[in-house]
Design a protein around this nucleic acid. Structure first.
Lengths: 216, 216
DNA sequence: ATATTATTCAATTGATTTATTGAATAGAAA
DNA sequence: TTTCTATTCAATAAATCAATTGAATAATAT
């Protein structure tokens, strides 16, 4: 009938199509942390450069990422914060309504961290009062591109050494790329083995930033 | 490397895949208005029953819809309000970052309604003061399943007759299924031709309900 | 029981997607 | 210029998807 409606839904479907592949979603998660070049993205995702480039172009055509050329390299980044929100809602829907996802999460993550994660607002308050050490356990490049205000960058390799220098009573909150990023789970596990009071932030840096909370 | 991350992203991609087809997005928009049976959905979407059924099953596997059987019929509905939010974000991203979408919208819709649409909060206030007549121009089945509190159901066919009974000074606000639903645009155009003070609500019933505003 | 109705299943066709490979481009350095 | 590097383009094979058709199922009515 009305071809306008038809055309419009097909346009919206382009965005859905861009989100229909796990590798592309992983690329988007990396881009939610920081702007990156094609070969960096190929490196962290484990895809070939040509393949990465093609996926990025699909993401660009769907309006999810933008690119700029600087010297030899082409740098990609998310086209806006609305993309972070979209990805977050996608995760939430999958998490709440797909049984396989619930099973996957509970078998891998909940086992590691039986404690409730810490809500953002609570962390904000406690950080204000100086009661808590906030650990960013992502790679340094991502930390440099932006992090929770006051957080210390301690990748997992350096965590044991770092923890040795802390008081026993010190409260620790760890975060990384997103709500299901395993690095933060692992960090909490390591800290608890040392007898420290450690918890995990409910989600990662992109969500923190999206909520308008203080960043550096 | 970590197959957990890989598996998880592939699960999330199932949701994206479900959103990667225009017909499925249209079905979701209908379901955001009201629960419907397979043949109703086939009727409004123009797809064959078998095809509709298959698309619905893909949506169900992706966790976007649920179904219940009553007598002969199987009724489908959205699996939660988070799906409305997801669809809204998808629309927003497409609208903001894809040039083709902007062109499509401005060539078809903005031409029809040069006035700014009315924000939800403003309508809520004016409706409280009894200053405005709110028109729901969707089909009666959708109106019956839920509508903005105080709205009158006037499908386009009955609009002219309805408007004749109104005072000239009466302010009118029309809405339908969503921010790009043409019914509301058409209703505003017809009312203005009659010399009435008519505007369009910024989006449709699902978004109104999602925002927690009063419904009936 | 038999017939009717709504929905789903199964099989088919043509179109689209993914990952791989090797070649082509475009900018920077030698 | 020539050489090198980062990225993109083009061509391919295997896998997946969309729509159609006709048959199968399950709940109701006759």
């Amino acid at each position: 009938m009305t071809s306008f409606k038809h055309d419009l839904f097909n346009q919206f479907a382009r965005v859905g199509k861009a989100l229909s592949n796990g590798n592309r979603l992983e690329l988007l998660e990396f881009l939610a942390q920081a702007e990156r070049s094609v070969d960096e993205l190929a490196g962290v995702s484990g895809l070939s450069v040509a393949n990465t480039s093609q996926h990025l172009q699909q993401l660009r055509q769907a309006g999810l990422v933008i690119s700029r050329k600087q010297g030899l390299k082409v740098y990609y980044s998310l086209s806006g914060d609305d993309v972070i929100r979209l990805l977050d809602d996608l995760r939430q829907v999958a998490e709440r309504h797909i049984a396989d996802v619930q099973q996957l999460l509970s078998s891998v993550l909940l086992r590691k961290d039986e404690l409730e994660p810490l809500p953002r607002e609570v962390l904000l308050q406690r950080a204000k009062d100086g009661l808590v050490t906030v650990l960013d356990v992502r790679p340094p490049e991502e930390y440099v591109a932006g992090h929770v205000a006051g957080a210390v960058n301690v990748p997992l390799e350096e965590l044991e050494a770092y923890l040795s220098g802390l008081d026993e009573g010190q409260e620790i909150v760890a975060y990384c790329r997103g709500p299901h990023c395993v690095l933060a789970f692992d960090a909490v596990a390591i800290a608890r083995e040392k007898g420290l009071n450690a918890r995990r932030l409910e989600d990662g840096f992109p969500e923190w930033k999206l909520a308008g909370y203080p960043v550096e």
